[in-house]
Design a protein around this nucleic acid. Sequence first.
DNA 1: GGGTGTGAAGCCGTTCACAGCA
DNA 2: TGCTGTGAACGGCTTCACACCC
Lengths: 217, 217
Amino acid sequence: MQQPISMRTIERLSRYRRVLTDPSRQGVSYIFSHTLAALVQVTPSQVRRDIMGLGCAGNPTRGYRVEELLAAIATVVDDDQPQPVILVGIGKLGSALLNFFRGHRPNLQVVAAFDNNPEKVNRIYQGVRCYTLEDLPRIVAAERVSAAILAVPATAAQEAANQVVFAGVCGILNFAPAPLFLPAHVHVESIDLTTALEKVLFHTRHHALSSVVLNPR
Amino acid sequence: MQQPISMRTIERLSRYRRVLTDPSRQGVSYIFSHTLAALVQVTPSQVRRDIMGLGCAGNPTRGYRVEELLAAIATVVDDDQPQPVILVGIGKLGSALLNFFRGHRPNLQVVAAFDNNPEKVNRIYQGVRCYTLEDLPRIVAAERVSAAILAVPATAAQEAANQVVFAGVCGILNFAPAPLFLPAHVHVESIDLTTALEKVLFHTRHHALSSVVLNPR
DNA sequence: GGGTGTGAAGCCGTTCACAGCA
DNA sequence: TGCTGTGAACGGCTTCACACCC
């Protein structure tokens, strides 16, 4: 009866959590589906559906208890303990990401960085030490790392991914604009910056042509 | 009869183009749907569907002519001229993105950067000058900019978006982890880094629990 | 035989619509 | 009255299956 939660729902749960924990909303202890819906820009039905999957009950007069929602979301997407993550590639993008993820979510912690450039090895970047790729297996094992952020050039991506997976990682957030070929048990989430920008340009272009003939979403 | 092209298809077209223009594939002039499919990791039917929408004919014995495909893709997603884009926010992430988009696609050009920090104004970052936000309307008009990349902190995102839209931009690639409330004619594409990483962690976690009970994709 | 082009079927996520309830 | 919880309808995207062609 507890039916599987779709990936789309996970994404939204993450966003619900973000707005629910927004400091400006401090002190609000109950929220209606339509309020939350407006905040993340989805439909109220969508919110209720998602929450249904959480097995979390609301109340017709007050809505959902925020604290309860947050706890339920954490149960689904988080672990109880901080999740150790590694970063591979400390170029401009890599260090920007390091900076971004630092303190963004409390239990999502970058525990080590890796780079092939000898000048970078052993230096500390925003409190995170940089190692050679040779240290991967050791550190992945020691810190029980299961996910890696890949911020290397496209040409180095496949090789880096191989090494990371070999070291025991089974989840990758990939920023290199290249498809990765990896064993089926590895989950790859690619952030395709070029494609994203091209999508925006496609839209503006069609807006300019004032012939917006395409289905939304 | 030429039916509208879905957003999903646009994304894939962008990826098809990437692998088709890969230097290592130089000299290959024909390609089969299954070959291209393997390269971008989709099904052959998917590739054929997408190409069908392009109105581009293939040949049973040789496949599709690469040059023809590229031309057709360009017609749909690109413009003939380089597309001017602006960047708002030259922090770590902003300059990493500037670096990334520089020379990644030829006709996709960052023409100006903007930041509120007076120390950054008038400096040149990777060949791109930084301006105050007050210069937005002028430059957007002069350069005929229609899209903006937003790389500012979450707290500043809405305000920056307002200004950018006021200046005449109608497409935004947003990196701030905050929803943007804007007029309907503006297209916002959000890159949600936190959510993306949480998705990966969700997967690894469920892989670890060896109870991967969810539908793929 | 092996590929393309495409109608038809299937699948999944979203939205509707309404019963139940405070 | 107005919101939650949810079966049922809907719609879009993907995959199937097969006619057609080199």
